[in-house]
Amino acid sequence: MSQAEARQTQRVVLQVNGQRHELDVEPRWLLADVLRHQLGLTATHVGCEQGVCGACTVLVDGKPERSCLMLAVQAEGCEVTTVEGLTPAAGLSPLQAAFQQHHALQCGFCTPGILVTMEALLRENPHPDEATVREALSGNVCRCTGYQFIVDAVLAAAKEGR
């Protein structure tokens, strides 16, 4: 295998936020980068590129996974959902609105990854207790607000039935 051969692109079909996309990607391209650069879905942020920070978290077949630890070619046949796909055409989702009301973000870099993770949590467990929220949140690093307001927002959204 020469480098030239390895750098050839492959045609893949990705299903993202309910839309079908045919794309040419190099095998080495990360799903996070393809979402951002090929599809322009720039809400998914790339932080640490080693799975620790959680900023790039997206839903793959409904489950939170790291888009920096998945190749775009591997997402073929899966339904990928980014925070854009969780946002209504106008306004905010109930979870997003709760984040706004409870000041659960400051710079916003971590917010998309946290929103998709918490959305998945609330779908699986509509009435989580605080410990469950904190455990699910433990995979997402926020460096400005602290976590208290985020937990408040998620619990409030759960209480209001999102």
Binding site: A6, P27, R28, Q50, G51, L69, L71, V73, Q74
Partner: peptide
């Protein structure tokens, strides 16, 4: 799953010629 291998790829500590994907 790639949760150990892809960080190594991202840091270029692993430089395989080819990946054989077992997921399917």
């Amino acid at each position: 799953g790639g949760q150990s291998l892809i960080p190594l790829l991202n840091f270029r500590m692993a430089r395989p010629e080819a990946l054989v994907d077992l997921n399917r």
